[in-house]
Write a protein that binds this DNA or RNA. Structure first.
Ligand SMILES: [Zn+2]
Length: 486
DNA sequence: CGTTTTTGACCTGCGC
DNA sequence: GCGCAGGTCAAAAACG
């Protein structure tokens, strides 16, 4: 698919200046205790680190430097002063012979003079530059906003088209297979037929049915293109997205409705693994597995598989999109196919641009799996504060931020969510208050992990389906009262 | 009473 | 072929 990576850039343009001290800062830090960085004083270092890393930010360097220069001028005037002092000292050394008196007065006098003269003009110049930079920044924000709107519209159109295509293909496949059932004896599997009739294109229920019947159908049709598509679909169905998050709850809420259909004791883990299937539509092939980590039972691993065959509420689309995107990317060969767990910068930065240090890919597993690890945040408060505050301080809504990183791979609804949210969402000030309340909560880490996980699949989308699960998610980040309940 | 969860049985793929 | 492990089914129980 023609993924608009620009979508990422738009958002980055918009957010980066503020959210820069984010996940990138913690790249490679798996343990939390020693790597906790002091919140305020390290901000600039973190920002610098970020800019040093991904080339995707290079093109914004100027803007961002300007942005932070604003702060630098505000805060460490002494730094500038020192620099000037140093340079003047050097000059003095060179010219020194004729200025004994002055040198006798030492550089401190000079510095006083410098302070009296240059700062005024410098201040003016600085303010001018600052104003210019701000104007430029605002202009770009506006431009960014426009581009986002355009992108948003494109994404919506794309989603609609995709839905149409899926529906058409499934109807077509159903028709072909039914004909075969009547004529040449495709396996009539009643349940599968029923499922297909109820709109299951990628019905995971009937995997064997899919294989046998569809292959037969394909033989009869003898269309290479479809064959390729079928195999791709199979790969996509098997591709998985795994989310690790700390949560007390037995499952994370992700905007979908699930029914538990099995539970097994997995080898090497005392905690049972639970199997759920999506029940938002009859025959939806999407499944998920939920299991606690053996080492740390506060960590909940949720693995998603398959694509929904029905319209999703915005709340649930991010995760679905992520799964699908991961599958597409795995399928496209953008990742190694033979070795084990790898760190794919490409996929990470593309799929989870703000969480690059938290994603990993396993190609050696029975199924290619993309793992989003939300448990490795060294300083959840710091991380959360930045992640939560900055986006909407930059005029973006929270869901937009959480949704967007998952959506740049063409389909997706983070932007939709943001749009849907604006009319009814809480004002930014309220969000800021919420964040304050959140960050003050002692149980915040768990809530955070759960919330992020949930928001990944959810976010406040307007809940057209009245999904009960969403309520928890919303409470975790949208409650004006700052209540955090999970 | 309809829906969801529980749980033992069953199926499938894989390694030996 | 056998055993193991992962995954699914489906009847019974629990729930609202
Ligand atoms: Zn579904």
């Amino acid at each position: 698919m023609a993924t608009p990576p620009t979508g990422l850039f738009f958002e980055s343009d918009h957010i980066t200046p503020s959210i820069s001290p984010l996940p990138m800062v913690f790249t490679g830090h798996n343990t939390s205790s020693s790597s906790l960085s002091p919140p305020s004083t390290t901000t600039h270092f973190e920002a610098t680190t970020l800019y040093d890393q991904p080339d995707t930010f290079d093109h914004k360097l100027i803007k961002e430097v300007d942005f932070f220069n604003d702060k630098k001028h505000d805060l460490p005037i002494s730094d500038n002063y020192d620099l000037h002092k140093d340079s003047t000292v050097d000059l003095d050394i060179n010219i020194n012979t004729g200025l004994h008196l002055l040198t006798g007065n030492t550089s401190s006098d000079q510095s006083v003079i410098d302070d009296g003269v240059s700062p005024n003009s410098e201040d003016k110049q600085t303010k001018h530059e600052l104003a210019t930079a701000k104007a430029e920044f605002e202009r770009m924000c506006g431009e960014n906003q426009q581009l986002k709107e355009v992108l948003n519209k494109m994404i919506i159109d794309y989603n609609i088209l995709e839905m149409h295509i899926a529906t058409m293909m499934q109807q077509k496949g159903e028709r072909n297979c039914k004909e075969d059932v009547n004529g040449k004896g495709c396996m009539p599997a009643p349940r599968s037929v029923m499922d297909l009739g109820l709109a299951a294109e990628n019905d995971e229920h009937s995997r064997s049915f899919d294989k046998d019947q569809r292959l037969n159908c394909l033989k009869n049709d003898n269309r290479d293109v479809e064959e390729i598509e079928q195999s791709n679909e199979a790969t996509i169905r098997r591709a998985r997205v795994s989310v690790r998050a700390r949560s007390e709850a037995s499952v994370i809420t992700d905007g979908c409705q699930w029914r538990k259909y099995g539970q097994k004791m997995a080898k090497g883990n005392p905690c049972p693994r639970a199997y759920y299937r999506c029940t938002m539509a009859v025959g939806c092939p999407v499944r998920k597995q939920v299991q606690r980590c053996a080492e740390d039972k506060t960590i909940l691993t949720t693995t998603y598989e398959g694509n929904h065959n029905h319209p999703l509420p915005p709340a649930a689309m991010a995760m679905a999109s992520t799964t699908s995107s991961a599958a597409q990317m795995l399928l496209s060969g953008s990742m190694p196919s033979s070795d084990g767990v790898t760190n794919s910068n490409y996929l990470s930065t593309t799929l989870f641009p703000y969480s690059s240090n938290m994603t990993s890919i396993s190609a050696s597993a029975p199924f290619p799996t993309v793992t989003l690890d939300l448990t490795q945040t060294p300083n959840p408060l710091h991380f959360q504060r930045d992640q939560l505050q900055l986006p909407f301080l930059n005029s973006s809504s929270l869901p937009q931020f959480f949704g967007q990183p998952l959506n740049n791979q063409s389909k997706f609804s983070g932007l939709q969510m943001s749009q849907n949210i604006h009319p009814q969402g809480p004002p930014h000030a309220a969000l800021a208050d919420t964040v304050t309340a959140l960050t003050a909560d002692p149980n915040f880490t768990a809530a955070l992990a759960t919330a992020i996980s949930s928001i990944m699949g959810g976010g406040n989308g307007g809940g057209s389906t009245g999904n009960v699960n969403n309520e928890n998610v919303n409470a975790a980040y949208c409650d004006n009262n700052g209540n955090v309940s999970n």
